[in-house]
Design a protein around this nucleic acid. Structure first.
Length: 211
DNA sequence: GACCAGGCACATC
DNA sequence: GATGTGCATGGT
């Protein structure tokens, strides 16, 4: 399994190169993006984030004092905008209550404990929590998403119904924990998923993992 | 017009 | 514990 996972990474990296994730300028922007991208493509999320940037509202304190309705209208392009506005607010409540809205303060928290805290926020599940840990806070945590599940189950590395934790442990137990590599690996799986491993119309004949 | 996208919470059995 | 459903925009 070690060799298999390493082999997949090498093939993907050779085929696609570095992906430059996360597309966000600051840790806070990454955290906002992590919530907005839930079950939504990045292009729509990008529009929502640009709306916030245009109004110069993309900071913890600005967003925290923004009315829920106003926030919802600004993030509208990201879809599920009402529920995502609430989720952002829930996260901000948590962020200010425990860390004064301060990234440096948040950064001091130990990874496992912080993950538990993030999962306690309504609207932050495992993937969102892990995306924040890896891409905003540079913790060596592997992010699992639908593409990861689909690709690994189609390659018979896990059962189709395997829970999040099983997939995450597969990577954690068989790879050296490394932020840069975990960053690229997940991004590469998403790239592969988008281009070759779609739900209904996979393009297996041209897949870089073929063979 | 159907299908899909870098999930999550909640209701119900 | 497993299964089903609501949330919603914009691209293909």
């Amino acid at each position: 399994m070690r060799k298999r996972l390493k082999d997949i990474y090498i093939k993907l990296y050779s085929a696609f190169g570095p992906q430059g994730w996360w597309p966000g300028e600051t840790p806070f922007e990454v955290m906002v993006g992590a919530i907005l991208t839930q079950n939504t493509n990045w292009q729509n999320v990008s529009r929502a984030i640009n709306n916030l940037k245009k109004e110069k509202l993309l900071s913890a304190s600005k967003l925290n004092s923004l009315r829920l309705k106003k926030l919802a209208s600004l993030i509208r392009p990201a879809g599920y905008y009402n529920i995502k506005a609430k989720r952002l607010k829930n996260f901000l409540d948590f962020f200010f209550k425990h860390y004064k809205g301060n990234i440096r303060s948040l950064s001091k928290k130990e990874t496992t404990e912080l993950r538990r805290e993030l999962l306690g926020v309504n609207g932050i599940g495992e993937e969102t929590a892990d995306s924040i840990l890896l891409y905003a806070l540079n913790r060596p945590v592997f992010v699992v998403d639908t593409y990861t599940k689909r690709i690994l189950s189609r390659h018979k590395l896990v059962k189709e119904e395997a829970p999040y934790r099983v997939l995450q442990n597969l990577f954690a137990d068989n790879l050296i924990a490394n932020v840069k590599m975990f960053n690229e690996y997940h991004a590469l799986l998403v790239k592969l998923g988008k281009d070759f491993c779609r739900k209904l119309k996979p393009r297996c004949a041209q897949c870089p993992l073929k063979g």
